[in-house]
Simulated assay, not measured.
Amino acid sequence: LVEASLSENTRIAYGKAWRAWTDWCLGFGLDPTGENSDAAADERWLVMHLTALSEKRSLSTILLRRAAVVAIRKRLKRPLAVDDAEFEAFLKGLRRTKGARPVRKAALLEPNLRAASLVLTPHPGLAGNELAGGAGEGRRAVRDMALLLTGFAGGFRRSELAAFDLRDLSFSAKGLVLFVGRSKADQERHGAEIGIEAVPGSALCV
């Protein structure tokens, strides 16, 4: 249950950060866990590690790496005496020298969605329960297009789309209702129902 207090993605990110910290410390003959008092990597070494990272890594990565190392060392009962004021000064200097522009992904626009629909449109016609042109290929095309349209209309994350089950879906007079059991903004799984209104006149509403 203690492990479940962190999301799966956070645990994966913390694990990657800890491996990077461990490799870096071992390169200097240091103990990353702090258990060996004669060669323990302390907070000064963490600052040097983050400084080395700042040459190639983004500000968000540096913040994550620091949080991971501090959290894991605390769990190991070998906490680091991190000076928050000094670290804030370090971040301020980093922003001045590197900038802190966030990395944003390009948005999927309606023309892109229409182009994708042309590629994913299955062969027309039905043969029993199988789509013409190959049951497997046809079903995959329908599934992929449904996921793409649903994600676009509902603004869902990839993880949310992947977690949907048929039990999460219901129809209303106005369209589709999806139950989101868990999302990045709802780590405690209160859940929420998201409605997607039908647009009968649209070529993308299938």
Rank of each mutant, 00 (worst) to 15 (best):
S159C: 08
G15N: 09
N9W: 12
A192V: 11
G34F: 04
A135G: 11
R158T: 05
A81P: 11
S37G: 14
E86G: 12
R139D: 08
V2E: 03
W21N: 14
F152A: 12
I62L: 15
A4F: 02
R95P: 00
R96D: 13
G154R: 13
F171N: 01
L204K: 01
A40L: 00
N112C: 13
P124I: 03
V70N: 11
L53M: 15
I62C: 05
P79L: 04
R182L: 15
A141G: 06
I196M: 11
I12H: 15
L1H: 14
A17P: 08
D38I: 06
R73T: 08
G195F: 03
L120W: 11
V180I: 15
G133A: 07
V177I: 14
R73M: 05
F179Y: 01
A40C: 06
I62D: 06
R140I: 07
A163K: 03
G155F: 04
R140M: 09
C25L: 00
I72F: 02
R57H: 07
V119K: 09
K184I: 05
L118V: 10
L94N: 10
W45E: 09
A89M: 14
R95T: 03
L178D: 01
L26E: 15
T10I: 04
L80W: 02
A163L: 05
M48L: 11
S54K: 05
R11L: 10
R157A: 02
A132I: 08
E193D: 14
E55F: 12
L118C: 05
K92A: 15
L148M: 15
S37A: 15
I12P: 13
S5N: 14
A127N: 14
L149H: 04
R104I: 12
G195W: 02
L1N: 12
E193K: 12
A68G: 10
L46E: 01
R11D: 00
L94H: 11
A13W: 03
F152D: 13
F179N: 06
L63V: 07
T61M: 02
R57A: 12
I194S: 00
S170F: 01
G27R: 00
G138P: 07
